[in-house]
C-alpha cells in the first residue's frame, strides 16, 4: 500500500441557515489521498464535493464552519494538522503545499491586474526562489498558453484561457497536492479533453497528488486512479477506478453508472433513473442516507450505524447489504 499524503478524518462541515439552524454538508467523512495518485470524487450537485475541497483549503467562512474532524497533511515537514493552524502558518500551506483549480475561472482573476502581476504576488507571498519572469513563462507554457498572455488583463482572455491561467497559477508554486474542483465543467468538450490530457501528463512530470472533483463519471474514469462516490455529504463508495466502474457495490453507485450513455450503449436499452431527491441535510439522518430512494432497502438499513464494508481489495462500500448485493449480481 502506498503512502498517504493527506488524511481527512471524521470531517463535518456546516453551512448556517438564516433561521439559526445549519445544513451539514459533509457528514463524518473519512478519506485519504495517496502520494502520486489521482482521486476522483464523483457526486451530484449539493453532495458536498466542493465543500470538501473548500474545507481542505480552509476556505469555509463564518458563519459557516468546520464543526468537527481533522485534516492532516503528511509531507517532508512531518504531519501538519491543517485545522489547527494559525493564520500565518495556514497562509504558507495554501498554494505552496495544497493548491486548487476552482470550478469557474470566469471571475477568479483580479480584473484590474495583469496576469503576470497575479503570478508575482503569489510568488512574493511564498518567497519563491529564482527568477519570477522565467517561472511565469514556464508555467504558462506548461498550461498550454503563449507567454504573451502574461502582459494581458483577465478580460482579454477567453474562458478556456482563464482556466488555463488558473491551472498555471495552481502549479506555479510547485504544490504537492492539487485540488481540481470541476476544472473543465464550464468549458466545451474540445478544451475539456485538452485540459484533462495536460493534467494527466503534469501529474506524472510534477509528481502531483490530485483530488479531482467532478459530477461526470466519464471524466472521472478518464483521469482517476481511484474513484470515490459522494452522496449526501458522505463518501458511499471508494475504490480503484476499474473496481468501482466494473463492480459498483453501493446501490447509488450502480444507478449512477447505469445512467450513463456511452457510444457502446445498446439501442433501446433503458437507462436507469433515480426517483426522489437527496435527503434534507439540515435534519439529522438516522441510518443510511440513501434509504428513501434505494431499490434494495431493507428495514435494518434504518438502524445501520454507517461504516465502510470492504468488498474487495481497497474497495469500500458504505452499505449494509454491499456484499450480498455484489454476490447476487455476479
Amino acid at each position: 500500500m502506498s503512502e498517504d499524503i493527506l488524511t481527512v478524518k471524521n470531517l463535518e462541515t456546516d453551512y448556517s441557515l438564516d433561521n439559526g439552524g445549519f445544513v451539514r454538508a459533509i457528514r463524518s467523512l473519512n478519506v485519504e489521498l495517496q502520494k502520486g495518485e489521482t482521486l476522483a470524487l464523483v457526486g451530484e450537485s449539493g453532495s458536498g464535493k466542493s465543500t470538501l475541497a473548500l474545507s481542505i483549503m480552509r476556505l469555509i467562512d463564518k458563519p459557516n464552519k468546520i464543526a468537527d474532524g481533522e485534516i492532516i497533511l503528511h509531507d517532508s515537514d512531518g504531519d501538519t494538522s491543517i485545522l489547527e493552524l494559525g493564520e500565518n502558518a495556514l497562509r504558507r500551506i495554501r498554494w505552496k503545499k495544497i493548491s486548487m483549480v476552482f470550478q469557474s475561472a470566469m471571475n477568479i482573476l483580479n480584473p484590474v491586474m495583469r496576469i503576470e502581476d497575479q503570478f508575482i504576488d503569489t510568488f512574493e507571498a511564498h518567497s519563491m526562489p529564482g527568477d519570477y519572469s522565467d517561472r511565469i513563462d514556464k508555467y504558462l507554457t506548461i498550461a498550454g498558453l503563449g507567454t504573451k498572455v502574461r502582459r494581458l488583463y483577465p478580460h482579454q482572455l477567453s474562458g478556456g484561457m482563464k482556466q488555463r491561467v488558473s491551472i498555471a497559477l495552481a502549479l506555479s508554486c510547485e504544490p504537492e497536492i492539487l485540488i481540481a474542483d470541476e476544472p473543465t465543467t464550464a468549458l466545451d468538450v474540445v478544451v475539456q479533453r485538452e485540459i484533462l490530457f495536460e493534467l494527466k501528463q503534469l501529474k506524472t512530470s510534477l509528481n502531483l497528488s490530485i483530488i479531482f472533483i467532478t459530477h461526470d463519471l466519464s471524466v472521472a474514469s478518464a483521469v482517476a486512479d481511484r474513484i470515490g462516490i459522494f452522496y449526501a455529504g458522505r463518501l458511499v463508495e471508494i475504490g480503484r477506478k476499474n473496481d468501482v466502474i466494473a463492480k459498483p457495490g453501493h446501490p447509488y453507485a450502480k444507478l449512477l453508472l447505469g445512467s450513463i450513455v456511452t457510444l457502446s450503449t445498446e439501442r433501446g436499452k433503458n437507462l436507469s433513473s433515480l426517483e426522489g431527491s437527496p435527503p434534507d441535510l439540515s435534519k439529522e439522518i438516522i441510518g443510511c442516507s440513501f434509504y428513501d430512494r434505494c431499490p434494495s432497502r431493507v428495514k435494518q438499513c434504518l438502524s445501520y450505524d454507517l461504516y465502510p464494508v470492504e468488498v474487495g481489495d481497497n474497495h469500500y462500500v458504505e452499505c449494509l447489504r454491499a456484499k450480498e448485493l455484489l454476490e447476487s449480481t455476479v
Binding site: R94, F102, N110, M113
Partner: peptide
C-alpha cells in the same frame, strides 16, 4: 468584494491579508 471569486482565490493563494485588502479588495 468578499463575495468575489478573485478574493477567495487570493486567499487560497496564501496572499497576506494586507495585500488582499489593498491590491484586491480596495483596488476594485
Amino acid at each position: 468584494q468578499n463575495k468575489e471569486d478573485y478574493l477567495m482565490m487570493a486567499r487560497a493563494r496564501g496572499l497576506p491579508r494586507h495585500v488582499i485588502e489593498k491590491k484586491y479588495a480596495a483596488r476594485n
